[in-house]
């Protein structure tokens, strides 16, 4: 099983402001890890460091390392394009391209060099099925993606990320703008993905973290306070700040 992520003393700065402080953690391959913590504590910054999307943010720097299956993602030999193919990402606000459903899902494979039409058809179908969207869109693959409902668009974005057949899927509060039913569909499909790839999900919703993850990591003011199997973290947190957060005393 590949797709293990390891951070080692990873720190990150926006200009002079340090957003992450010496993060060291292992996110086990094939499992779901939830990142929780109050807003502004660095969850998105950490998530976006894993696929080096933070590279495009000007005036930032990092120290320490993040490894994907043991390989330093910032090493000179690491090609950022192929890293992003291996590490897919889904954003808080769904962001399909204003193109057809098909073109959205086929985008990743196309920019990564797959041209064969039959092969693309197959990838699109598989990815939409994995994202639990196939039945709803199989008759409207050529229609604009922006005509779908919010929940469908977000699952389309998941399908689009899955089309690259990544080893890791990063999700930044993917359901925070969705209704409970759409949220449930996303949680279910993530559960289905368990075992086939590593899932890292940022969430504000503690019930969601408790329900839908194997491990939970609690971030606070740029630090990683504790990481534990989800059950343990929610029932017997070892740090007072974790306990204060999960019992709703701040955040």
């Amino acid at each position: 099983m590949s797709g293990e992520i390891q951070a080692e003393d990873f720190s990150f700065w926006y200009g002079e402001t340090q957003a992450l402080k010496n993060i060291s953690v292992t996110l086990p391959a094939g499992q779901i890890t939830a990142l929780i913590g109050p807003s502004g504590c660095g969850k998105s910054t950490f998530l976006r460091s894993i696929n080096r999307l933070q590279d495009v943010v000007p005036r930032t720097r990092h120290e320490g390392a993040i490894r994907l299956d043991g390989a330093d993602i910032h090493a000179p030999g690491m090609d950022v394009v192929s890293l992003r193919r291996r590490v897919g990402m889904v954003f808080q606000r769904w962001n399909p391209f204003p193109k057809s459903v098909y073109a959205n899902v086929a985008y990743g494979p196309r920019v990564n060099g797959i041209r064969n039409a039959a092969r693309l058809d197959e990838i699109v179908e598989t990815s939409l099925k994995r994202a639990a969207l196939w039945d709803e869109v199989k008759d409207r693959l050529r229609e604009s993606a922006t005509g779908l409902s919010g929940g469908q668009q977000q699952r389309l974005c998941i399908a689009r990320a899955l089309a690259n057949d990544p080893e890791v899927l990063l999700l930044d509060e993917p359901a925070s703008a969705l209704d409970p039913l759409s949220t449930q569909k996303i949680e279910e499909l993530l559960f289905e993905l368990r075992g086939s790839l590593t899932v890292v999900i940022v969430t504000h919703n503690l019930q969601q973290a408790a329900r839908a993850s194997d491990h939970t990591a609690f971030f606070f003011l740029g630090e990683l306070i504790e990481t534990a199997p989800t059950q343990t973290l929610f029932t017997a947190p070892s740090d007072d700040r974790t306990e204060a957060y999960i019992t709703g005393r701040f955040g």
Partner: peptide
């Protein structure tokens, strides 16, 4: 053109040129 469109392309493994061609110019 929204930043989210650029990030969508980058996150799927687009190069800067592909991002401009596919996410920025059409928008």
């Amino acid at each position: 053109v929204p930043r989210s469109q650029r990030e969508a392309a980058f996150a799927l493994g687009a190069t800067r040129w592909e991002m401009i061609r596919d996410a920025v110019i059409p928008g």
